[in-house]
């Protein structure tokens, strides 16, 4: 077995992930290979040093500062539970409704129908002065422009 595979096995051994068959292969190789034995010894020493690093105490101010940061963070903090679903759903529904209304308005003001509507409105307007109203009197006294159109 080549040394690269053995070093992989040494690494597994350090991580407690080497199976029984692997151990037998590893031991027989190590008995013959000084380079891999050295690698294993140094790796074990390194692991021992790494594990011996004493844990530091976090500064006492850390906990309060974390809690304060969360409190002061973006005000999405209040949006929890069912609100996390309800609020975005309501916003989405409002957007869809807005697009739908916008579509209807756009349709009713399209250039093709807008021209016709103006005509209709003007005709209706001239037709609809009630008899005796100021509009009717003015139209009559001005020469009956309305009558011409009628």
């Amino acid at each position: 077995m080549d040394c690269r595979k053995i070093r992989r096995m040494v690494s597994r051994e350090l991580d407690g992930a080497l199976d029984g068959a692997g151990r037998a292969d590893l031991d027989s190789h190590l008995a013959l290979c000084a380079g891999c034995r050295r690698f294993r010894d140094l790796s074990l020493a390194g692991l021992s040093i790494h594990r011996s690093v004493k844990e530091a105490d976090p500064p006492p101010s850390l906990l309060p500062s974390i809690l304060a940061a969360v409190e002061a963070g973006p005000r999405w903090g209040w949006m929890h539970g069912w609100l996390r679903i309800a609020v975005p759903a309501a916003v989405a529904a409002a957007a869809v409704f807005g697009v739908w209304v916008g579509g209807l308005m756009h349709e009713s003001y399209s250039p093709a129908t807008a021209g016709n509507q103006t005509d209709v409105l003007e005709l209706t307007y001239l037709d609809e002065y009630p008899p005796g109203s100021l509009g009717d009197i003015l139209m009559t006294s001005s020469g009956g422009g309305g009558d011409e159109q009628r």
């Binding site: 844990e55 976090p58 850390l62 974390i66």
Partner: peptide
Amino acid sequence: IAGGESDAFRVLVERYERIGYN
């Protein structure tokens, strides 16, 4: 915490603060 209980968040921080810091 997802349900908005701040006490639960505090417990979690106390439990993992040292691990994260180190």
